[in-house]
Structures are given as structure tokens and as C-alpha cells.
Amino acid sequence: MLQPTLILVYEPEKACLARLSADGYPADRALEISSYLAQSTDLAPEFDLLAAACEKRGLAFKPVELDDAAPVLAKADPTTLVWTLTDGIAYFRGGASPALARLNGLRTIGADDSLFALCQDKFRCGAVLGALGLPMPQAGLARNGEWLLEPPASPKGWFVKPNRLGAKIGIWPDSRIADLGHALELSRRVFSHYRDDVVVQPYVAGRNVRASFLGLKPETGVEALGIFFVDSGGDFQTMADSMALYGETGQAAKDAGTYVEPELEAVGASQPEADRKIRAIAQKLISGLGLKDVFSVDFRVEADDAVHLIEFEVCPGLPCFDFRDYCRREWGMNLADAMAQTAASRLRS
């Protein structure tokens, strides 16, 4: 009898760094870009814990680097479940993993491959989310100093971020702007550094919120969302802020005693109406867009309970402080046990 197997496909930072360097990116830019894959670096030391957690539940565990995934998945038997740790369609290539799983008739954890592509293109994603009636800020799009689409007027100014790179962050402290000429200057800088367009959205005030979800059981619904204010002391996260939390840079900060995690505070404790709105938005993302199993959604929440949807992620940072905290609070498990239990419940459903 075949033993069910959980295959975790991940793209290592070093493999991405080497590929970007070979493609002509300067060393410092390639390092910045590859740092978004730090969750692979952070989770790798726990592969033995994951294997033990899976074994307790009658599963085999097999971590597979993305460059090796095609032949491994082609040979996998039907009892295999594929969990893709890292996404990407541009600088990163993890979006190929669920497509390969589908090609080989294998079951997967998470959204289908079409959403892996959509969520990595902020402009297209925003158009889809707006069409669903969700509270997503409208966006303009610029490339190397030229407007492809001008953003709407905004009395509070605008926020500029790369279209396909990473998450919701602005790259630099001046990513919040007061005039659109500065937006075009930033688009030149982004294009020069990262070869990417920029999304220019009206600035929305409020506190940063992360909603995390892991469907430990197939029937799990939005009641299991963990919805928390994430306060890091700044209005928004920059590239430097992100690099300081994860991967080798984050580990160096821990070793030096300078590592500081942002504070987490349950939204429902102080703003229950905002919590309710966020759960309703998440339900629409599940039913209307197809999010499932494991995801996160980022918001800005104002003091009057106005909620602004910023983005969703189909590959949330599982080893990050906020997702670990969510697993402990919601499921009473460490990350390895939560992942193994989720896989076991899917393979037996």
C-alpha cells in the first residue's frame, strides 16, 4: 500500500540570486529581490520537524527545490499532495509548481495556479478585485517615467509600489508622495533597479492589518481567520524593513540581539465592526475568487472602521512571526504540526 506523501516545493534564495545575477542584475539589486524568498531559508531548518509531524499522521514528507520539481512531480503517485511554499511569475518562479501538479494530476494545497499568477500582478489583480466590488484603491500604472494609465485624483497624495515585486511594500521611505511628478521619478528608479512598472494608488490612512488563514480541516471557514493589527512603528514597510525581519539578515539581527518583531493586536478587541467587514471581504475572496486552504490578506483600517483591501497572498510567509502566532492562537499548534495536520486532513477527505 502506498504511503501518502506531502511534497513541499520551494525556491531557495541562493538559486534565485544566482539566476538574477546571471541575468545581469547588479549584486545589491539581486540580493534585495531574492530576499523575498527568505521564508524558504527560514523554514528549511525545520524540515526535520515537519517530517516528524507528518510521520505521526501517517504521511511521508519530501521537500523539493523548485528546479527539481518537474521530474519529481512527473514521477509522483496519486496519493501525493503538493504544497507550494513560494509563489512568483516574474523574478520568482514558484507559480510553476501548482501548474506542474495539475499537469500531473496531483492534488494541491492552496489556490489554483491562475491565482498564483494574478496575485503577483498588482495592477491586474486590482482590476479583478474592483470588479468584484471589493474596497480596493484604484490604481494608475507607470513605466520608466511614462504613464500607461494615470491614477485618480487624491487629496491625501498617493502611494507608489512595484507592480510585480514582492508584497504591499514601498521600496523606499519616499514611496508616499504628494505630487505625481515624483511618482514618475520613482517609476524611473524602480525600472532602473528592478525592471518593473509601478502601481500608483491614492494613499489610504489607517493601521496595517494582516488576516491569516489556514484551513486545518476542509470545512474551515472565515471564523478561523486571525485578524491582527501589525504595528512596526512606521506608516508602511520598506524594503529595508522587510529584509531586517527574515532570512539571513533577520537571523543576523537575532544573533546580534537587535531583532524586533512588529506588535500584533487583535482587531476585534478594539474595532469589532472592522473585524466583521474583513471577514465578509475574505468570504467574498473565497467564494468569488477561489482562495482556499492557506492564504493571507492585507488591509488598512481607519479609526472609523473604514476598511481598505490592499492585496492577498496565496503563499503567505508560513515561518514568519505573524503566521506562527496565528497557528498558536487559532489552532494551538506549532507551525510544523499545523502544516502536517492540514495535509493529513486533505489527503483523507
Rank of each mutant, 00 (worst) to 15 (best):
R29Q: 14
A53R: 02
S232V: 00
V209L: 13
R57T: 00
L264Q: 13
S287M: 13
A211D: 12
P135M: 07
F321M: 04
L149I: 14
T41I: 02
A256I: 12
A44M: 07
A253S: 08
L85C: 06
D197M: 06
D174T: 14
G221D: 15
E46C: 11
A38H: 00
L165G: 01
L81N: 06
Q251R: 15
G317Q: 02
A178P: 09
M243K: 10
F92H: 14
G170R: 05
R164S: 07
E302R: 15
L66Y: 07
L20N: 05
L225G: 14
D305L: 11
G95Y: 07
V72A: 02
G317L: 04
S34Y: 10
Y36E: 01
A52S: 06
V82D: 12
A306V: 08
E330F: 06
K277F: 02
F295V: 03
I7F: 04
L132Q: 11
V260W: 00
P137K: 01
D174V: 13
D112Q: 13
A74H: 08
P63R: 03
W83A: 06
A269K: 15
P4F: 02
G24F: 08
L129E: 07
I109F: 10
A178C: 13
D174P: 12
E13V: 12
P98D: 12
D304Q: 13
Q283R: 15
L165P: 01
S114W: 10
V190W: 04
